[in-house]
Design a protein around this nucleic acid. Sequence first.
DNA 1: TACTTCTATTGATAAAAATCATTTCAGTGG
DNA 2: CCACTGAAATGATTTTTATCAATAGAAGTA
Lengths: 230, 230
Amino acid sequence: MNPSCNTCEFKNSSLFKNCSSDELNHLNDSKCFNVYKKGQVIFHEGNRPLGLFCVFNGKVKVSRLGSDGKEQVIRLVKKGDTLGYRSLIENSKYSASAIALDDTEACFISASEFNHLIDSNVKVASDLMRMLAKVLGDTQDKLVHLAMKPVRERLAEALLLLKSTYDDKKSEHFSISISREDLSSIVGTAKETVIRFLSEFKEEGIVSTRGSEITILRADKLLQISSLYD
Amino acid sequence: MNPSCNTCEFKNSSLFKNCSSDELNHLNDSKCFNVYKKGQVIFHEGNRPLGLFCVFNGKVKVSRLGSDGKEQVIRLVKKGDTLGYRSLIENSKYSASAIALDDTEACFISASEFNHLIDSNVKVASDLMRMLAKVLGDTQDKLVHLAMKPVRERLAEALLLLKSTYDDKKSEHFSISISREDLSSIVGTAKETVIRFLSEFKEEGIVSTRGSEITILRADKLLQISSLYD
DNA sequence: TACTTCTATTGATAAAAATCATTTCAGTGG
DNA sequence: CCACTGAAATGATTTTTATCAATAGAAGTA
């Protein structure tokens, strides 16, 4: 159950891929394995970070809440991803919350452990820097698309993002169970608006739904729709 | 005219504040001082970065263009700021263009020089990392506000951003000459929409305009307007 | 099974913003 | 100084999206 860093599935792909065996053992001794139920808060906006999370399994949304209760998803996190490093680096409070979209397991690594690691292993530090640069680029993309694309195209893009993030190629068509509320928070629009365009997609045979589960039948068409403005 | 790194105004505040005198001399020998006219492109979306820019004077917008010709400003850059580092770190093409909003002077530092510096001086690397984290945070803020706030509030925010970025406290009221087109690209809306709300602000005595010059008379009111939803 | 509750869906309407058209204004060059 | 040009400003209209209201459907529970 509690995975060991030295045999972890993500040993060669995570932020810690350039750690030595010793460093991994050390991480393993100090880390703390946590389980979160769907909907549970992993960390909360405004709190001070005590360390970072390495997601072992599940799905997580990083999002911010407006005073009117509206939510905007900033990032989707999947297994193997690191979570909560930005505030840690900046030494500031969390500016967003992380909430499990599914039952999720994550290892917690303390701030001191993490800081020690990036101070002592230049490769990890430079991987971290590249990761930051990549996430910054992704966020800029989001910003530009939010400003320039209409909802229909952003919805197509969001569905493709869900697919590219969470598809583990186990079945012919990618399916995901996601509330319309969450989906609208990714797209940056109202729940009803998402539902309407989703219904359009259904009529066009691009997706199908059963309850809250959405199945993508024609990713090619979604790609076409999403990139009308690119 | 051509400033020396060792006596540069931004020696103690730039990304290079933790360089040794030797390192600064080395930077100085290899750097290249450039002058850009207002409206001139400093680097262009899609090109490969050859180095980074350290802005010595002027104002720069970093923005992306949609296929429909619409522009979205991602970041405003002022003197003392570094420009074009994200693509360099990611080793990818520029995802946005940098365009001078005013006559601008900037020093160009080659990629190899820069990479050598961050490999050899851990402090510079960690400052760079913190800078990335900060810019990422700012971009996430932008994203959330774009998704949640109506135009009137985003315009108030944009005016405050211009003030906080470019005000050098030389006069009682901050003034800036900016085209309505550029302003609307910062806010993420249409030119006419910006003009309408700007007219409202004028009627309310919050700003005044003369041609393309905007003067902020009541920053406090702008703050109030911009944070209705925070 | 019947009931309860939550969520998805659809419809009607209102609000916000974009677009198109026109007029006014400021700066530029003869 | 005046004509010219491009940008700012305003008005009218359309499009897009949000909001409010009601219905239908799924999932869990007694």
